[in-house]
């Protein structure tokens, strides 16, 4: 039984291969980029603007607002990374409504890749905000004894992030595939709608968790300043 779109391989030369995950990812990238270009090439700076521009403004300002609500004081700094996380995962999950589409997020490789990005981004943002020394000092808090647990915590939450997204998306795709073989027609449709909802929620959860982790890395410093 096929668990991941990684298993659909179109082309392979040694270590290099072109599988469904990469292909659909490129497709999503092309869709997001071309869509953005099409809308933003004719941006209006006045009150009168196109409905597509309105949609993008709502999405961008909505994400920025969410980031600010979680506790990051300058959402625009993190908008590129966190916004792209959300848009990529949400689009990947949304496209499950199309037949023959395999969500790249249903591949553990993709979710691991995204989790690794978050895993690396957290110390980078933390260091950018408070400097190397101050950031590394946070691993020794409240005492130096906590260092191993802090590191384990970092790693485990990254792993949890990856597995959570993968598990949800993969299970959704699995359930639909299994149901299609047992009860065709109506029931898989309901499950597909449920999967769509789950996908959106997962995109939100993944992004919010990443935001919370980054905020935790950044906020410690700010709380010190406030104190």
């Amino acid at each position: 039984m096929r668990l991941s779109p990684d298993d659909i391989i179109f082309w392979q030369v040694g270590f290099f291969k072109l599988n469904a995950t990469l292909l659909f990812t490129w497709g999503l990238m092309a869709f997001l980029t071309i869509g953005s270009i099409l809308v933003t090439r004719n941006l209006s700076h006045h009150e009168q603007r196109s409905r597509w521009q309105n949609l993008l403004e709502i999405i961008v300002t909505g994400i920025a607002k969410q980031i600010a609500e979680v506790g990051l004081p300058q959402p625009r700094v993190y908008l590129g990374f966190l916004g792209t996380l959300f848009l990529f995962i949400a689009t990947a999950n949304l496209f499950t409504i199309f037949p023959y589409y395999e969500p790249p997020t249903g591949s553990l490789s993709t979710t691991v890749a995204l989790s690794l990005c978050v895993f690396i981004a957290i110390p980078l943002f933390g260091i950018a905000d408070q400097g190397v020394r101050d950031y590394l000092k946070t691993y020794l808090e409240p005492t130096a004894l906590m260092l191993p647990f802090n590191i384990i915590g970092e790693v485990s939450r990254t792993l949890a992030l990856a597995v959570r997204l993968f598990g949800n998306m993969m299970s959704g795709a699995m359930i639909i595939a299994i149901l299609l073989t047992i009860t065709p027609f109506v029931f898989p449709l309901v499950m597909s709608m449920l999967g769509l909802l789950t996908g959106m929620v997962q995109a939100y959860i993944f992004t919010i968790l990443a935001t919370v982790y980054i905020a935790a890395a950044v906020r410690t410093h700010h709380e010190d300043i406030v104190d």
Binding site: L22, W26, F88, S107, L108, S109, A113, L114, C117
Partner: peptide, 17 residues
Amino acid sequence: LIDWFTVVAQIANFLIL
């Protein structure tokens, strides 16, 4: 379940995106 080439490629893809 984890194809490391895909992981690297997806990281690159994500950064490009």
